[in-house]
Protein backbone atom coordinates (compact mmCIF):
# COMPACT_ATOMS: atom_id res chain seq x y z
CA UNK A 1 0.00 0.00 0.00
CA UNK A 2 2.95 2.27 0.58
CA UNK A 3 3.42 2.10 -3.17
CA UNK A 4 0.20 4.01 -3.74
CA UNK A 5 0.66 6.38 -0.81
CA UNK A 6 4.11 7.21 -2.20
CA UNK A 7 2.54 8.11 -5.51
CA UNK A 8 -0.11 10.19 -3.76
CA UNK A 9 2.42 12.03 -1.60
CA UNK A 10 4.72 12.57 -4.52
CA UNK A 11 2.00 14.13 -6.65
CA UNK A 12 0.95 16.27 -3.70
CA UNK A 13 4.43 17.73 -3.25
CA UNK A 14 4.61 18.40 -6.97
CA UNK A 15 1.33 20.26 -6.86
CA UNK A 16 2.37 22.38 -3.88
CA UNK A 17 5.49 23.32 -5.80
CA UNK A 18 3.38 24.27 -8.79
CA UNK A 19 1.14 26.40 -6.60
CA UNK A 20 4.13 28.57 -5.67
CA UNK A 21 5.14 29.25 -9.25
CA UNK A 22 1.51 29.54 -10.26
CA UNK A 23 0.97 32.25 -7.68
CA UNK A 24 3.85 34.24 -9.10
CA UNK A 25 2.55 33.69 -12.61
CA UNK A 26 -0.80 35.19 -11.71
CA UNK A 27 0.85 38.15 -9.99
CA UNK A 28 3.39 38.63 -12.74
CA UNK A 29 1.87 41.93 -13.85
CA UNK A 30 3.04 43.75 -10.75
CA UNK A 31 5.84 41.52 -9.65
CA UNK A 32 8.64 41.91 -12.18
CA UNK A 33 11.87 42.40 -10.28
CA UNK A 34 13.98 43.27 -13.27
CA UNK A 35 14.71 46.77 -14.42
CA UNK A 36 14.45 48.03 -17.97
CA UNK A 37 17.89 49.49 -17.76
CA UNK A 38 18.57 51.89 -20.59
CA UNK A 39 14.95 53.04 -20.51
CA UNK A 40 14.92 53.93 -16.85
CA UNK A 41 18.03 56.09 -16.95
CA UNK A 42 16.14 59.17 -15.88
CA UNK A 43 14.64 57.61 -12.80
CA UNK A 44 17.64 55.43 -11.99
CA UNK A 45 19.46 57.04 -9.12
CA UNK A 46 22.38 55.38 -7.45
CA UNK A 47 22.87 55.55 -3.72
CA UNK A 48 24.91 58.48 -2.42
CA UNK A 49 27.76 56.29 -1.33
CA UNK A 50 27.89 54.29 -4.53
CA UNK A 51 31.43 53.94 -5.76
CA UNK A 52 31.38 54.70 -9.44
CA UNK A 53 34.57 56.55 -10.12
CA UNK A 54 36.85 58.97 -8.35
CA UNK A 55 36.30 62.62 -9.20
CA UNK A 56 37.75 65.86 -7.98
CA UNK A 57 35.05 68.47 -7.41
CA UNK A 58 35.78 72.00 -8.56
CA UNK A 59 33.91 75.04 -7.43
CA UNK A 60 32.64 77.85 -9.66
CA UNK A 61 36.04 79.60 -9.63
CA UNK A 62 37.67 76.48 -11.03
CA UNK A 63 39.32 75.78 -7.72
CA UNK A 64 39.88 72.38 -6.21
CA UNK A 65 41.05 71.27 -2.79
CA UNK A 66 43.99 69.06 -3.73
CA UNK A 67 47.22 70.13 -2.11
CA UNK A 68 49.26 67.45 -3.81
CA UNK A 69 50.17 65.67 -0.62
CA UNK A 70 50.18 62.31 -2.46
CA UNK A 71 48.53 60.44 0.37
CA UNK A 72 46.00 58.99 -2.05
CA UNK A 73 48.78 57.86 -4.33
CA UNK A 74 50.37 56.03 -1.41
CA UNK A 75 47.11 54.58 -0.19
CA UNK A 76 46.12 53.16 -3.54
CA UNK A 77 46.86 49.43 -3.68
CA UNK A 78 46.95 49.26 -7.46
CA UNK A 79 48.81 52.37 -8.48
CA UNK A 80 45.80 53.83 -10.17
CA UNK A 81 46.57 57.34 -8.97
CA UNK A 82 49.57 59.31 -10.15
CA UNK A 83 50.21 62.88 -9.12
CA UNK A 84 52.49 65.11 -11.09
CA UNK A 85 53.41 68.11 -8.99
CA UNK A 86 55.79 70.96 -8.90
CA UNK A 87 56.85 73.69 -6.54
CA UNK A 88 55.48 76.93 -7.84
CA UNK A 89 55.13 80.41 -6.53
CA UNK A 90 51.81 81.01 -4.88
CA UNK A 91 50.47 84.23 -6.45
CA UNK A 92 48.86 85.37 -3.20
CA UNK A 93 51.56 84.79 -0.64
CA UNK A 94 54.51 84.92 -2.99
CA UNK A 95 56.00 81.81 -1.43
CA UNK A 96 56.99 78.63 -3.18
CA UNK A 97 54.47 75.89 -2.61
CA UNK A 98 53.77 72.32 -3.70
CA UNK A 99 51.11 72.34 -6.37
CA UNK A 100 49.67 69.68 -8.56
CA UNK A 101 50.03 69.82 -12.27
CA UNK A 102 48.08 66.72 -13.00
CA UNK A 103 46.14 64.36 -10.80
CA UNK A 104 46.01 61.29 -13.02
CA UNK A 105 43.49 58.58 -12.26
CA UNK A 106 43.53 55.24 -14.08
CA UNK A 107 39.96 54.04 -13.89
CA UNK A 108 40.93 50.82 -15.62
CA UNK A 109 43.15 49.84 -12.72
CA UNK A 110 40.86 51.01 -9.94
CA UNK A 111 39.22 48.38 -7.74
CA UNK A 112 36.89 50.88 -6.07
CA UNK A 113 38.28 50.14 -2.63
CA UNK A 114 37.89 53.69 -1.40
CA UNK A 115 41.23 53.89 0.40
CA UNK A 116 42.33 57.04 -1.46
CA UNK A 117 39.22 58.91 -0.43
CA UNK A 118 39.67 57.73 3.13
CA UNK A 119 43.26 58.92 3.06
CA UNK A 120 42.62 62.36 1.61
CA UNK A 121 43.10 64.93 4.38
CA UNK A 122 41.43 67.77 2.51
CA UNK A 123 38.47 65.97 0.94
CA UNK A 124 39.75 66.90 -2.47
CA UNK A 125 38.53 63.72 -4.17
CA UNK A 126 35.27 61.92 -3.73
CA UNK A 127 33.13 59.23 -5.28
CA UNK A 128 30.90 59.97 -8.23
CA UNK A 129 27.83 57.88 -8.82
CA UNK A 130 28.36 57.48 -12.53
CA UNK A 131 28.49 53.81 -13.40
CA UNK A 132 28.46 53.90 -17.17
CA UNK A 133 32.18 53.75 -17.51
CA UNK A 134 32.63 51.67 -20.62
CA UNK A 135 34.64 53.19 -23.44
CA UNK A 136 35.92 51.93 -26.77
CA UNK A 137 39.55 52.70 -26.14
CA UNK A 138 41.16 52.06 -22.85
CA UNK A 139 43.25 55.17 -23.05
CA UNK A 140 40.02 57.04 -22.26
CA UNK A 141 40.07 55.35 -18.89
CA UNK A 142 43.09 57.37 -17.88
CA UNK A 143 41.69 60.62 -16.63
CA UNK A 144 43.16 63.85 -15.41
CA UNK A 145 40.99 64.79 -12.47
CA UNK A 146 41.96 68.43 -12.06
CA UNK A 147 40.50 70.62 -14.75
CA UNK A 148 42.84 72.62 -16.97
CA UNK A 149 43.75 75.97 -15.46
CA UNK A 150 42.36 75.02 -12.09
CA UNK A 151 44.16 75.93 -8.93
CA UNK A 152 44.15 75.17 -5.26
CA UNK A 153 41.40 76.81 -3.31
CA UNK A 154 42.92 79.38 -1.00
CA UNK A 155 42.92 78.44 2.61
CA UNK A 156 43.08 74.69 2.07
CA UNK A 157 46.09 73.47 3.97
CA UNK A 158 47.31 70.02 4.54
Amino acid sequence: MSYFSDIYKGIKTLLTGMSVTGKYFLNSRKGAITQQYPDNRDSLKMFDRFRGEVVMPHDENNEHRCTGCQKCELACPNGSIEIIWDRKVDPETGKKKKMIEKHIYHLGMCTMCGLCIEACPTDAIKWAQNFENSVYDRSYLTRVLNKPGSRLKPGVEE
Binding site: Y24, F25, G31, A32, T34
Partner: peptide, 10 residues
Protein backbone atom coordinates in the same frame (compact mmCIF):
# COMPACT_ATOMS: atom_id res chain seq x y z
CA UNK B 1 7.17 34.90 -21.99
CA UNK B 2 5.62 32.28 -19.72
CA UNK B 3 9.01 31.51 -18.23
CA UNK B 4 9.52 35.20 -17.58
CA UNK B 5 6.18 35.50 -15.84
CA UNK B 6 6.95 32.52 -13.65
CA UNK B 7 10.31 33.99 -12.81
CA UNK B 8 9.35 37.57 -11.98
CA UNK B 9 10.83 38.84 -15.20
CA UNK B 10 9.40 40.66 -18.20
Amino acid sequence: KVAAWFQLRL
